[in-house]
Simulated assay, not measured.
Amino acid sequence: MNRRRFLKWSGLGLVAATLGGLGMRQAQAGNRYYSGPVSDHFDGTTFFNPGGEEPRGFTDLLRWQFGGGKIEWPRPAQAADVVTTKPEPRVEGSRLVVTMVGHATLLIQTAGLNILTDPVWSERASPVTFAGPKRANPPGVTFDDLPPIDLVLVTHNHYDHLDIETLKRLVSRDNPAIVTPLGNDTIILGDIPNAAIRVMDWGDTFDFGRGMIVHCEPCHHWSARGMGDRRMALWAAFVLETPGGKIYHIGDTGYNNGTHYRQVKAKHGDIRLAIMPIGAYEPRWFMKAQHQNPQEAIDGFLLSSARYGIGHHFGTFQLTNEGIDDPPKALKVAMERAALTSAQFRGLRPGEQFDVPLAEPA
């Protein structure tokens, strides 16, 4: 049986597609999503992390999948983890409120704007509805309780970040602006041709209006939706420049010696809030290049000199080996080592909110 058929019928093909085509190092005749000039992170066919590490290939995927060590998550999640919140319709002025929906989906409210990151209300983070990583808890905000959305940030195309069905619902209801890195516009428009999309490259700036400017910044990750589109669409972080200060949002990233954290500090200076992933990091030998762990997240937070931080990307979809409560436990240890308190950095559970102060904690 050839490798492609083995993946398809063994179930590993679903794992590979869900996590972004981990299983294939295929020859690529051309880029199906993007055509543009060569740059320091695009070779004419695929995107890459300058000076960084590529994701691992098929052999390592098998080693991970058959290597054991995966901790089973409770289903349903513990009651303490399940909270449903109805956000305010709008948050005005310099006040900043962030509500965790689940995984990498957060509602950011400030300056009268409602912003969603990597929205996923689907039951599974998967290319199919009958299999793949399933929610361990419901969204912390029901879709019907979601206020009108003005802007959606889609950081990259992995299924736990780019969910076409949720985007269809948002476009049909609110028709928000969707900001996403190069190539992801092709994926979205293929299913939602009337979506209002602004596509950005690293270093690009977009004046959204109403006092907000969006900056597209590097992070250390990769992309794919299946077996044949590895790194054909770009991944990115964003800095939102708002009347109440700058918000640094990262959907997924490897730590990569803190390179992008140093870069964002040098470029943007004072950052009021940094939102960064802290989960999906075990086994470390396989995940290190693409997913930072809680200690690395805290190290990056300190390098960025952000005043406040939020940890996300844990406790909703089991993508890797660690237990459901391992990321917040490891985060607590990392924060204690750095002498940080929960007033400065919080790992938000679904339904939890953070009303971010303007001033430094006392």
Rank of each mutant, 00 (worst) to 15 (best):
R169W: 13
M212G: 01
L19Y: 06
V154D: 04
P176V: 00
I192D: 07
T45E: 10
I197T: 01
A289P: 01
D160V: 05
H41V: 00
D326C: 04
L170N: 02
V128T: 03
A334C: 11
D185I: 00
I298A: 14
G51A: 06
Q353F: 12
S126L: 13
H221N: 09
L19A: 11
G21V: 05
G279N: 15
M200K: 04
P350T: 02
D204L: 11
G51W: 03
P357K: 12
R173Q: 14
K288L: 05
L62I: 11
E165F: 04
T155M: 03
L340Y: 07
I250P: 00
E217M: 15
G258E: 07
H161R: 12
G351A: 07
H312I: 06
T59F: 14
F6I: 07
L340Q: 04
A237I: 02
L107A: 04
E88S: 10
K134F: 02
M276N: 05
L358W: 10
Y33H: 09
R210C: 04
C219H: 03
T259P: 02
I115E: 02
G57T: 05
T105C: 11
P181H: 08
V101K: 02
T110G: 00
V214G: 00
T84I: 15
I192E: 13
G132H: 12
P148S: 14
D229F: 12
H313Y: 14
R169I: 01
R5H: 14
E360L: 10
F286D: 01
F58H: 07
F66N: 08
I298L: 13
C216M: 03
T46M: 07
I324D: 13
L340G: 03
F317S: 07
R225Y: 05
D270Y: 11
L107D: 02
P181G: 11
N175M: 12
R210N: 11
L116Y: 09
G36S: 12
L96D: 05
M335W: 09
K288V: 03
L12M: 12
S342F: 13
S305R: 13
K246D: 00
H161L: 08
P283Q: 06
R210V: 00
E296N: 04
L162G: 00
L273P: 02
V356N: 09
I324R: 14
Q26K: 15
V101W: 04
S35H: 08
M24C: 08
R32W: 13
M276L: 06
L319K: 13
F345K: 05
F58P: 06
V83Y: 10
L146G: 01
P277E: 13
R173C: 06
L234A: 07
R173H: 15
F345L: 10
H215V: 00
F47A: 04
F345A: 07
M276C: 03
G226T: 02
G190N: 04
E165D: 14
V101H: 01
Q263N: 07
G228K: 09
R173G: 07
R32N: 08
Q65C: 15
S305A: 10
G226E: 09
Q344M: 12
P55L: 10
R284P: 00
H221I: 00
N114M: 08
H215E: 01
A266W: 06
K332R: 15
V120H: 10
F130H: 11
A27W: 10
H41A: 02
F238I: 01
P87V: 10
E352I: 11
W73P: 01
G183S: 04
R169K: 12
P127C: 10
F345R: 06
G52M: 10
G315F: 08
Q26T: 14
A359G: 02
D145W: 15
